[in-house]
Design a protein around this nucleic acid. Structure first.
Length: 412
RNA sequence: UACCACCCAUUUGA
């Protein structure tokens, strides 16, 4: 069993999750029973694989052998359900853990953060304090993350201040989150202050911290600073490259963005890095936002020839270009692709389609897509209203506006 | 011998 466990562990740490599950199946066949060390590993693999069915089977088995209440097993189950987006189930397991430790609470908080539930994260944080447990640096960082992910930027900064006043240790991960918030806020001064903390704390060698710094300077229009920081990074990863591409794109310098992108695509320059869907989307969006729709679509065509698949973000960008250029044919083509790839049902894409069709003069088709949107948001409504507006159907526009209010939205 | 936190692209609105 010791051998089984070390094989499982090796596969988990190399992220060969499918392999872990097949090893587990073999263990069952060979009549080897997992112990308190094997189960957390198997559970972890299931969570990453994302199959609800598999997770349920494994969880069922864990309950049968009465391992659920063990803290290491329970913590891992909580993490698994968090990754599946099932915080209700995570909570049930959490409540069943016999003796919860700090990691149990932290895993719940990070689960809520991952699922954009800042309220749940706050509740757990308070619950932890009530139980007399001292939140550690991971607890605080998870709490910051939950706020940042929900767009509570100012509160994130405030919590960071509170964290420091409480004398909690600050580490690279903490600073990376705060930097990402500075980027979102375009907070140049704040970014410089945190940059100071990075230097003082000796976190400059962390690639992900440098990446966050590139983003901050990039979002503030300081492209030269961004570039210099980028060049300082010893082990550039794909995020580093994408951060620089985005910096140029945001500044409207889409040709420079493209240069960086092309450099990334040259095998002799970047040994084992290739442009991913973010790189492509960033550079396509760069041209789109600069009003160079044709070039943008050209890049999209090239992307289709590459081995990188467009995702909902890419398609929403391209659809907005189609709308602007009234490129109905490409728009329809993308609509077909959306259906084949089962990407309909995504609000980003659906809104993009409504906008594209109405701008291309196909009010009917736009309306049809609009009707089929399950959870319309304000953007869906606005797109439809402006669609009517363009076609001079003021009455329909006003009518739709009334429906917005009836649906319980606050028009902006 | 196992468990928690981190960085990049985002659709509507003259």
């Amino acid at each position: 069993l010791l051998l089984w466990n070390s094989i499982l562990r090796a596969n988990v740490s190399h992220q060969f999750y499918g392999k872990v599950v097949s090893l587990y199946v073999r263990m069952v066949k060979d009549g080897v029973f997992g112990d308190g060390f094997s189960w957390p590993l198997v559970i972890r693999a299931c969570g990453y694989l994302g199959s609800v069915y598999l997770c349920r089977v494994v969880h069922g088995r864990v309950v049968e052998i009465d391992f659920e209440s063990r803290v290491y097993v329970g913590n891992e189950l909580v993490g698994m359900y968090g990754r599946l987006g099932r915080m209700g189930d995570a909570r049930k397991v959490f409540d069943n853990i016999g003796v919860r430790n700090c990691i149990s609470w932290n895993t719940m908080i990070s689960g809520y953060a991952l699922n954009y539930e800042v309220g749940g994260a706050m509740e757990m944080f308070r619950g932890m304090e009530c139980e007399g447990l001292e939140p550690n640096v991971v607890t605080w960082t998870s709490l910051l993350s939950s706020h940042a992910r929900c767009g509570r930027f100012v509160e994130t900064i405030e919590l960071f201040g509170l964290m420091r006043r409480r004398g909690v240790e600050i580490n690279a991960e903490t600073l990376a989150i705060v930097l990402s918030v500075c980027a979102d806020l375009g907070a140049f001064v704040g970014g410089k202050v945190i940059h100071g903390c990075v230097v003082k704390g000796g976190f400059e060698d962390y690639t992900f911290v440098k990446n966050a710094l590139v983003s901050v300077y990039g979002k503030c229009g300081e492209v030269n600073n961004a570039r210099n920081l980028f060049l300082e990074i010893k082990d550039k990863n794909i995020v580093s490259w994408n951060a620089l591409i985005t910096s140029y794109a945001d500044a409207g310098l889409c040709d420079d963005a493209l240069d960086v992108f092309l450099e990334l695509e040259r095998p002799q320059d970047c040994l084992n890095l290739r442009a991913n869907v973010v790189s492509w989307s960033a550079v396509i969006d760069g041209f789109a936002s600069a009003g160079q729709g044709e070039e943008s679509l050209d890049l999209f065509r090239q992307m289709q020839l590459s081995h990188v698949n467009a995702n909902t973000v890419t398609l929403s960008i391209v659809l907005s270009v189609c709308a602007e250029l009234a490129a109905l044919n490409l728009g329809r083509e993308i609509h077909g692709h959306v259906i084949r790839a089962a990407l309909d049902g995504n609000i980003l894409v659906e809104n993009g389609l409504v906008n594209m069709y109405t701008k291309c003069g196909c009010l009917k088709e736009g309306y049809r897509v609009f009707q089929n949107i399950q959870n319309k948001d304000l953007i869906s409504w606005n797109s439809m209203i402006s669609g009517y507006g363009i076609h001079g159907l003021g009455a329909s526009a006003l009518d739709t506006f009334d429906q917005v209010i009836k649906s319980g939205f606050k028009p902006d």
